[in-house]
Design a protein around this nucleic acid. Structure first.
Lengths: 238, 238, 238, 238
DNA sequence: AGATAAGCGAGACGGTACGTCCCGTCTTCTG
DNA sequence: CAGAAGACGGGACGTACCGTCTCGCTTATCT
């Protein structure tokens, strides 16, 4: 199988090797590993996936090319690790008691990532993933899935509170919400702003919520009150 | 500026040269041009954008490398041309009198393209476009925009018929509808089926429509009647 | 078979291609070829065969590595060509009417080559040839054999003049004469001087000549008269 | 200075350490040392000097690379040691009362070594020595010199017996005799047989002997009688 | 008809990066 | 402390393509 997990598992740092004994030989240089990942991130903020060369990463990190290849089988795996290690503990969901609030908050955080220099890495991973199945798989497993897991809980809480219909296909809803963001991010046919995110939520969640009460944040349009009892869903979802 | 228009403009086929006279010298070989585009498409169905080499295109087309470079400045322009010339007259919108029907029909056609061998070219263009601004621009201008223009008309007809609120942001709606497709197409975290398309339409359009009467096609879920009185939109859109 | 002939044969300069037509494609750059050979020679005078890198040759010649590999299959073939092209028209035999004089003259010329900067190339070829059969074969065919052919004639003239016995094994004689030079050149256990050459000739040829009259040149040792009547060969050779 | 002596001197085996005390720490593993030398010999019989890698030696010997480097400074020193340890007690000279017999016997033994699998090591050492001065020096000091010392005695006995002229340059004579062998061994332009050795001796020693009476062994050529009165040496040597 | 001009296939050119091998050094644990 | 193991920074390997160029040849228009 492809090396999509962090390389940490092949040879561990002391103590990181759960039950077993240390592998023989000189242990990997955590310093080198981090320098490589840091350089990869840095370089990816300047160029795209295709333009990134292992040669340049190694040189920038002050490391031999072989050291890179020892731990990552190819550019894709390296880029995924670089991405994952720079986005690990972000983009969590809050629990405000409102699906609308929780979702739009997280979507705005995601937006901020995409618009930051790290957004280049996301587009690099998706781009690279179009010809490297392992790369897009890693993106799914290491980035998308953990966030979806959290999102499911957020949405289920909404269901339990009656904000969402119980038979709603959660992945469908998430695809609709985030797909709009990904599309604009990748195709760049229009601005990717907080208003845009707000409007997505408004369109989708007010349509999908029993009472479409949550106005898009920071829109100038009159908001008309966040009343709990109105705003019915289309028949199919109720 | 970048060569995103077809190379036809540098030296035209006989008769294509509006007012002027024929340029001196041997005219370009239309045969070569088509062989190159055909080979590009063919090879892109086997590999991704990054893996496609001009060298291989030329060899496969039985053409000198210089002939490729004479007419296309780089791989991106070539790929866009190959894509455009293979998708020119497709994906039009019908006018059935129902936004729901028109949209879901076209989305299903689009889906069919993505799932066909030509879908590889779409993903190649989007992937390549992440590091080549001209490439994604060409995708927008030569593929996305024409389709959006048609979509606007379809949606405006819907507005006129009262199926859609008049202040609806059309690009937002289209991003939500198509973004979900693009996302699943690019990230491949779930199946890209006709049911999926139907459910997108149902969720978004029934939510976004004043009376969400159109059930998703061929879904097993009990649809519960397209009752006209419920399915309100959020205040912002009504 | 191995590429030991000059690369000239794969694609010829215009006119060099006896009967046939020109090969298609851009013709080889004679300039590049010579730059490469020149750089090879130059670098070999600074280092040995093992230390010579194609990388360095290409860099020094201002040429791409691939250009080197296009015309020479490996370092050995390149070094042989460099050696041959720098030693082509040298080391001929005179015809003075005396085997002794002709041989010792040529041997001294050879000595001069070995002691010059080009001697490094000879030792490089022999060294490299110990693990590359094609390399030592090329040395034999392109350097040793032509000289031996000339030497045979010189020795046969000596036979006809009665200076040498008619049943003498010419290769044996040449191995004995030159072997002593090669040995001292390669093992470096003693000085390789003109006196040494003179003494070899004196020992071998005066022993092998019917009348060993030629004294070693410039030796301090009392020579005791080059009397024509003594110095007979052993019975086997007379 | 270069490590050309056996590594034994750095840290001795127990008991080998003349007056002093045992060095502290774990003593070197004689087993490892021998495994390394054995592997070196074995691998050198398959490839040449340039192709031999310390990496491969260590792996083949089941030894860490560092252990090799601890005891030998470089490949040359290792190869010399491997060669010396596999040829230590061979190639001695007999004392038959005849220079001709003693020399040709030893030369044939030498020939046998060259033609055996160990001959590869000799050529490797000479080849390597062309770019590593220490290597060829070690070859001289540890292989050539001891044999020459013995050869001097053999030849001096011949002088005392009157078989050789007293003013003969011994190194010159040995170079002529052995040079012919080395040359054919290294350049491989002709077979290296016992007949060849016999003919060298016949040509050189019968020429260099006062009466060239010893016919080459097993030669087909009619020898025409070892007549005692002719076969004089050139004046310089008599 | 001949001159001029550009496109054609082929493939060599100077380069860059690839992924691998080995260098000689180092850092760990075990004996 | 030596030893096996094997990672480290580094350098060269031989290959694949890059985009440009130089060939001989072909196909056109312009004298």
């Amino acid at each position: 199988m492809r090396q999509t997990q962090s390389s940490v598992q092949k040879q561990s740092q002391p103590g990181n090797n759960a039950g077993g004994k240390r592998l023989p030989g000189r242990p990997r240089s955590e310093q080198a590993r981090q320098a490589i990942l840091r350089s990869t991130s840095r370089l990816l903020q300047r160029t795209g996936f295709a333009e990134l060369s292992i040669e340049a990463v190694a040189a920038h990190a002050g490391v031999g090319k072989a050291t890179v290849y020892r731990w990552w089988p190819d550019k894709g795996a390296l880029v995924v690790d670089a991405f994952a290690s720079s986005a690990e503990d972000e983009l969590h969901f809050a629990d405000s008691g409102s699906v609308y609030k929780d979702m739009s908050l997280q979507m705005n955080q995601f937006l901020a990532v995409l618009r930051s220099r790290r957004g280049r890495i996301v587009s690099a991973v998706i781009a690279g993933g179009q010809s490297d199945p392992g790369l897009i798989q890693a993106f799914r497993e290491r980035f998308l899935r953990p966030r979806r897991q959290e999102a499911y809980q957020t949405l289920r809480r909404g269901m339990e509170r009656g904000e969402l219909p119980r038979n709603l296909d959660l992945d469908l809803l998430l695809d609709v919400l985030y797909g709009a963001i990904y599309m604009r991010f990748l195709i760049r046919h229009a601005q990717l702003t907080e208003d845009y995110v707000a409007e997505i939520c408004h369109l989708v969640l007010n349509g999908a919520t029993k009472n479409g009460s949550h106005p898009p944040r920071s829109t100038k349009r009159t908001v008309g009150g966040g009343n709990g009892r109105n705003g019915k869903l289309g028949a199919a979802l109720t």
